[in-house]
Design a binder for these strands. Structure first.
Lengths: 259, 259
DNA sequence: AAGTGGTCTAGACCACTAG
DNA sequence: TAGTGGTCTAGACCACTTT
């Protein structure tokens, strides 16, 4: 129809920029390499810094980049596969490199959402609940922070209430919970943003994107415990193996170039 | 109450703003209600529009808000629980309201990442691969778009190559794939951003946050098929039930106020 | 045509890290 | 102290939906 339309559909600059940068990462950069700083990149592409940052944010969300204040922007390694086991053996065993580390154990308040998962009815008395904090490390990097809520009624044969709050008490509660046979578990995964305390544990800024894994552990008499684990969404790929771990080889090439 | 004084804290403005808005959503707004527009909200809180938008983006990421260009910002309903079944019956059955809908089926190219999951070795000939597009709907809203890669060698008894590309062919490939007994499946979940085609299917803008579920279906002779499904991260909560669906009652209150 | 959210700019200052 | 990414501003225009 006569004249040739150059760009019939206007692609946003930051989107196009993201594509260009993504291809550059594939071809010209190696994992761990430091990118030019944002001001220079913005100037190089002829856009405002805010626009450039919009593209970098996307790439960081996809796990391609890692940005650290005061340091710079580096090319991120492929995401770590983190097993979210379906079996029950995750209470103790598990791959040594990715085990949960008990951090603390107090008897504290329970969020409303968790209360209903535990089967608690209304406001009035519901008995004490152990709140265990655990962290998970992979390749030396923290990948997840967890709050595990265990009603004292789920571990009746435990006399650790008087033990000092801390990792030791956390371990004894976990051991006792492990004794009561668990019938199964329900699990859900959703996107969230890191609360201040989790962010600190994960070495990220508050609001960083996380994958929230909520697990309900079922005992003989209903829900025995509820776990809310937040995984770093930028560095983690959660794996649910019915028969081994999924291994994804990304299509990225790691080439030369040092500049 | 017109303007809310932001405390002189070290906390970033947008973060504090997000908290304030979140509490306001809990107490003063009902699901589906329309918020004041961004320019007015920004003025009301005494911040720049960009700062206000940073807070809104966070809340949208957490599934609390829904923003539509040309329309406005509304209070989002609680996330839909979408079952990512562990069993094999998801090929056909499944909850009627959340079933997959075949859209198309062509024989096309396979991304590098999927190639390695399928066990393909190097560049040269690997035989044709069916690429099936499916979508998933829940409560009338599209929640997921999937690309299912089925090597023709996985469905040898199929003579549908000559059938016209389309939903009909997709169904016959799925039926045939269902016939070969599947031994199990590996699955992984990670955060991503919607590609242009997926975004269109999901009624979102390109780059919208999605949960990417990669599934490897194992047959008697290795990987029989690979599925890459992208779920809307803002509206979906993926559930993995070992014994029924997880039901989360969010701590939000739906109160009065109509304005 | 009016009103909404989405994109983009060109600055400024702050918080953090490292030499 | 110099350099980085993180936050924030006050505008402008664009794409889209509804009236």
């Amino acid at each position: 129809m006569g004249t040739t339309q150059l760009e019939p559909v206007q692609e946003p600059k930051y989107w196009h920029l993201k594509t260009v940068l993504s291809e550059a990462l594939d071809s010209d950069f190696a994992v761990g390499e430091i990118l030019p700083n944002e001001r220079e990149l913005a100037a190089r592409f002829g856009v405002a810094r805010a626009t450039l940052r919009q593209a970098l944010e996307q790439l960081e969300l996809e796990g391609r980049l890692q940005r650290r204040r005061g340091v710079g922007t580096t090319v991120a390694p492929p995401r770590v596969g983190v097993a979210v086991s379906t079996a029950q053996r995750d209470w103790n065993g598990e791959v040594a490199d990715q085990a949960w580390q008990p951090v603390d154990c107090v008897t504290g308040e329970v969020p409303t959402a968790v209360r209903s998962l535990l089967g608690f009815r209304e406001e009035p008395g519901t008995g004490p609940v152990y709140v265990i904090r655990r962290t998970r490390v992979s390749n030396g990097q923290p990948v997840a922070a967890e709050l595990l809520y265990v009603p004292a009624s789920s571990v009746p044969d435990l006399s650790a209430i008087d033990a000092p709050a801390g990792p030791a008490r956390a371990r004894s509660v976990l051991r006792e919970l492990h004794r009561v046979n668990l019938k199964g578990q329900d699990r859900s995964v959703e996107l969230g943003s890191a609360r201040a305390d989790d962010a600190k544990e994960l070495d990220r800024l508050p609001g960083a994107p996380v994958l929230v894994v909520t697990t309900r552990y079922l005992g003989v008499a209903g829900t025995a415990a509820v776990s809310v684990a937040t995984y770093r969404a930028d560095t983690c790929r959660l794996t649910f193996g019915d028969s081994g771990a999924v291994e994804i080889r990304h299509e990225r090439q790691e080439q030369r170039r040092a500049s």
